[in-house]
Design a protein around this nucleic acid. Structure first.
Length: 513
RNA sequence: GCUCCGAUCGUCUAGCUGGCCCAGGACGUGAGAUUUUCAUUCUCAAAAUCGCGGGUUCGAAUCCCGCUCGGAGUACCA
């Protein structure tokens, strides 16, 4: 068996869509598992759709996710160039070869003429297709006399090269995911292989490149399945059948609500990114948000994507890149499209958050702290992150969960006051201050003095006193174990916050229960 | 319209060579436990008449046919 060589071949027309990222990932997993090569090829044969920055974006995004290439525009390799526009000179030769062998022909029909033809058919509720039935009525080297064709060519008239589909033959594509898919050539149209601007279309370029780059497996999106028979025929026409790559057409990624392919606009509308990285559209100036900037861990995104359309057949869901490489199996890829689930994506990120070392979480949290104008001791931040990370899924949620570790509350939740701060509470809180001043500032002695010697011994309401205490420190009835928090804040700060609550909230009349 | 692909809890899916599936797991949802609070965590629960209708078979989510629905393709775009 020949060496596994796969390619990810995006076209630089904008940011890399998350479905494309998954395609890249599956190619990568497959290549690594088989000790093969992963190639990045840029398919920029449509000059009108070129978007500046798109190529760099694609490379940056895949690099962020840990998808590495052995060959490609950015790393070079023995099969270059890896950008189709740089391979331009070679395609014409191959197009000429097909014409010479009778597999293709020149077509001189202008775009306007084609449009008119389509409208004409449409008016009769039919669809015009440039194929074995209609090509005789069009202007091409099959319908025109040879000398006329030559005259037009010599005169420099613009032309395209179209594939000449043989009549009424069944073409079978063997797909690794779907099995055999057969189509009849009469239903297929004579696709343009070579454009009048001198560039090949995707169909020609991808076959020529896959062949010359010795690609062994073509793993791409399902949208290519309908044109796969054309591709198989092209391999046949070139006489490359023996080395034709194997095909695997991946199911599509669908919108989370309703139906249809996931599109650019869905993401920000539905609250999850469709792109790996933020993308600033150079033309419209519009911003589309990315997973990275939203706070997703690259490992989580890889994990989420890997399981969207594939699973290892076990109940394990948290999988590292290494595990994915080991377990990946094309035959386990599902055939049906998958809807993206925002809640589950969040859960994945939560899981990965728990795996991060406290130091890493602290690093990620630091910019947020600075934005809030606080510059706490590094050790302190690490400690806070260590005890609070289990509560968050994204680093952006950390401040909301931990602000009271860094800044004293400037107000107290109304509902909490009503529920917990009853008559006599200022006295209780003053007592807390007394205890703090009279006991060693350590967890156990304080626990004993407050919970046992004061509250339990006097049969006070634990919930009310402890929650009022918490209210003074946090500003609300939330947060970690109270005395742990006291230890973190320190004696001075704890007392100051208690005093401030006493002064601010003051004595109330609501009777204690 | 035509061609192709697909169809299991709300979502992702297990199920691939028919019986171990009156369908398993995960997310989400509900309840309970733990906790001085919130969250985490743990336990339990509800949730798919396996799109519908026919077959084949002793037996079908699993095989066959039809239908329906959904998706993709149908460009000198990829």
């Amino acid at each position: 068996m020949k060496k596994v060589r796969v390619r990810f071949a995006p076209s630089p027309t904008g940011p890399l869509h998350i479905g494309g990222v998954r395609t890249a990932l599956y190619n990568y997993l497959f290549a690594r598992q088989h000790g093969g090569d992963m190639i990045l090829r840029i398919e920029d044969t449509d000059q009108t759709r070129f978007v500046p920055g798109a190529e760099d974006y694609i490379i940056e995004a895949l690099t962020w996710l840990g998808i590495q290439f052995d060959e490609g525009v950015h790393v070079g390799g023995d099969y270059g160039p890896y950008r189709q526009s740089d391979r331009k000179p070679m395609y014409k030769r191959y197009a000429d070869q097909l014409i010479r062998d009778g597999w293709a022909y020149y077509a001189f029909d202008r775009p306007e003429a084609l449009d008119a033809k389509r409208k004409e058919y449409e008016a009769q509720k039919q669809t015009f297709q440039y194929d074995c039935r209609t090509r005789g009525q069009m202007e091409n080297s099959l319908s025109l006399p040879a000398d006329e064709v030559q005259r037009r060519l010599d005169a420099g008239e613009p032309y395209v090269v179209r594939f000449r589909f043989p009549e009424n033959i069944d073409i079978t594509v063997h797909d690794l995911i779907r099995g055999d898919v057969t189509m009849n050539s009469n239903l297929l149209d004579d696709k343009v292989l070579f454009k009048s601007d001198g560039m090949p279309t995707y169909h020609l370029a991808n076959i020529v490149d896959d062949h010359t780059m010795e690609i062994s497996h073509v793993i791409r999106g399902e949208e290519w399945l309908p044109s796969a028979p054309l591709h198989v025929m092209l391999y046949k026409a070139f006489g490359w059948e023996d080395t034709m790559p194997q095909f695997a057409h991946l199911p599509l990624l669908l919108k989370p609500e309703g139906n249809g392919k996931l599109s650019k606009r869905d993401g920000d509308r539905l609250g999850f990114p469709v792109f790996p990285l933020d993308w600033h559209d150079p033309k419209s100036g519009e911003l589309s948000s990315g997973y990275r900037e939203r706070g997703y861990f690259p490992e989580a995104v890889v994990n989420i994507l890997a399981l969207l359309g594939w699973n290892p057949g076990t109940e394990q869901e948290i999988l590292s890149m290494e595990e994915l490489i080991r377990l990946f199996d094309i035959s386990h890829i599902s055939k049906n499209g998958a809807k993206f689930n925002v809640d589950k994506a969040r859960w994945f990120n939560h899981e990965y958050m728990q795996m991060q070392p406290d130091e890493t979480v602290a690093d990620l949290f630091t910019p947020s702290l600075e934005a809030h104008g606080v510059h706490p001791d590094r050790e302190y931040v690490v400690k806070v992150c260590g005890m609070m990370k289990e509560r968050i899924s994204f680093i952006s949620e950390m401040w909301d969960q931990t602000h009271y570790f860094f800044v004293a509350p400037d107000s107290y939740a109304e509902a909490a006051i009503r529920k917990r701060w009853k008559a006599g509470m200022t006295t209780h809180m003053a007592k807390m201050i007394d205890i703090l001043n009279s006991q060693p500032f350590e967890y156990q002695p304080l626990h004993q003095a407050i919970l046992e010697d004061y509250i339990a011994a006097n049969q006070y309401n634990t919930g009310q006193i402890m929650n009022s205490f918490r209210l003074a420190l946090v500003g609300d009835t939330k947060g970690p174990d109270l005395l742990t928090l006291v230890m973190m804040l320190g004696k001075e700060e704890t007392i100051a916050r208690l005093q401030r609550a006493i002064d601010t909230i003051g004595e109330v009349e609501t009777p204690a229960q």
